[in-house]
Design a protein around this nucleic acid. Structure first.
Lengths: 239, 239
DNA sequence: GTTTTTTCATTTGTCAGACATTTAAAAGTC
DNA sequence: GACTTTTAAATGTCTGACAAATGAAAAAAC
């Protein structure tokens, strides 16, 4: 029942993190040097460094060497947060025995939310990406991993079509973390054909800005994916 | 154009992180001791420690002191990832000048995706939470911050009603990160009444498992929220 | 006076060694 | 056999030092 007192470096990291989140430290502001911090918190420099590394791992600060160097509050960009979000999401799925169905349900539900927006805002660029991925998916020599990677790229283009960075960031985890689960499935030439066909229909609907048609095609894709996964897992269980 | 070679501690952290993500290190497996790692990577112990702190900050490992202690691959749980996801999402919004409209659009689109699932799966617990938050929101003495916090809790209950942990995790960022933006709005007694009324209608629809009615009420809430924000910001701009 | 070069102080990155603290297993005691 | 003590191993922390990078000031060259 007793709370294990967190490490000093964790305490210091939390203290600085709070200052950033609450706005007491603003973007590009320079933190005190390690020597000054170690005096302020009354700890040694290595301990301060461990705290700073923690914050660096979360992209909250960046460090620079040299005379005018130091630790600076980082301007957190989508790309920085993106990689971490995907890593965490992937590990969450693999470590918590999330079923294929659960993950697929989440992904398709979230994508469905993007469809109306994507129909309204998709640019020729988004369509071109989707068409290119469809073309790649139809290549006969493509490996299963390559097919799944292309599948992820296609769905990312759909999400990005909504032109809402908040949406893109939040959904990145769900979309990308699906890939390892998809990789567990081996796609026959026939099932690949069905999927590419549905991808084509989704792209067509987005081009025509027809949200209803896109939603129907996406639902069919969801159903077919679930079906495919069930038969693959059933086959595997029999052996 | 030249790539600044990353720090040794960053290299080591990346190396271990890859091993975890790729499954070469499995959950609860013990990493070599700091002394052994420093020998393996041919660096000093403080450098190894900085690398381990980086991984600890991402909840990828946990450390334990004592004879059988050491660093262990952590079983990443939703709760661990949750706090980090919310912190990152909040900072992303505040640092990238995301407009209220963009964030609200994302939140309502994602919640709409949960509505059909929540209608099918919501438990009495979810309904009770939503009713309780509605009741709190109707209290006259509630501060603006308290109102917003309750608003977030209400929407979280809606999302959790979908009974899909992947969905809950991914949406947590969008829902919780909205709060600081909502806090910028001061709610009149009248606007509070409208919002509570719409919340009530959403809860009613979920209780009746009526997805269409829930979707309509949610859409109205989205429109009203946007309207409210616009008038608040317009008023502020005038001064 | 202006430009270029050199020097230099500051700061992070890394290392070595040491001691403190925690923890569980091993050894000892009854 | 059950309990207590010892001990070894591991992380947590500190001190002190040097290396490397970097911008600014000082010096030199034109």
């Amino acid at each position: 029942m007793k709370k294990p007192r967190p490490d000093l470096s964790a305490q210091i990291a939390a203290s600085i993190r709070d200052a950033i989140v609450e706005g007491r430290l603003i973007v590009d502001e320079r933190l005190p040097s390690e020597a000054e911090l170690s005096e302020q918190f009354d700890v040694s420099r290595p301990t301060v460094r461990e705290a700073l590394k923690r914050l660096g791992a979360q992209s909250l600060i960046r460090t620079q060497r040299g005379a005018t160097g130091g630790a600076f509050v980082n301007h957190l960009r989508y790309e920085d947060a993106y990689a971490q979000h995907v890593t965490t999401s992937t590990l969450l799925l693999s470590m918590n025995d999330v079923s294929f169905d659960t993950a697929a349900e989440a992904r398709f539900a979230l994508e469905a939310a993007c469809v109306p927006l994507a129909c309204a805002r998709r640019t020729p660029d988004h369509l071109a990406t989707m068409r290119a991925e469809c073309h790649r998916q139809a290549q006969p020599g493509l490996s299963d991993e390559g097919f799944c990677a292309s599948d992820v790229a296609f769905h990312r283009a759909l999400v990005d079509g909504a032109a809402n960075p908040v949406l893109s960031y939040q959904l990145a985890g769900a979309v990308e973390a699906m890939q390892p689960l998809m990789n567990m499935i081996t796609f026959s030439a026939r099932s690949r054909g069905v999927i590419v066909g549905l991808h084509g229909r989704i792209a067509d609907a987005l081009e025509a800005r027809d949200a209803v048609a896109a939603d129907v095609a996406l639902s069919e894709l969801a159903a077919y994916t679930r079906e495919l996964a069930q038969s693959v897992f059933a086959e595997r269980a029999r052996r």
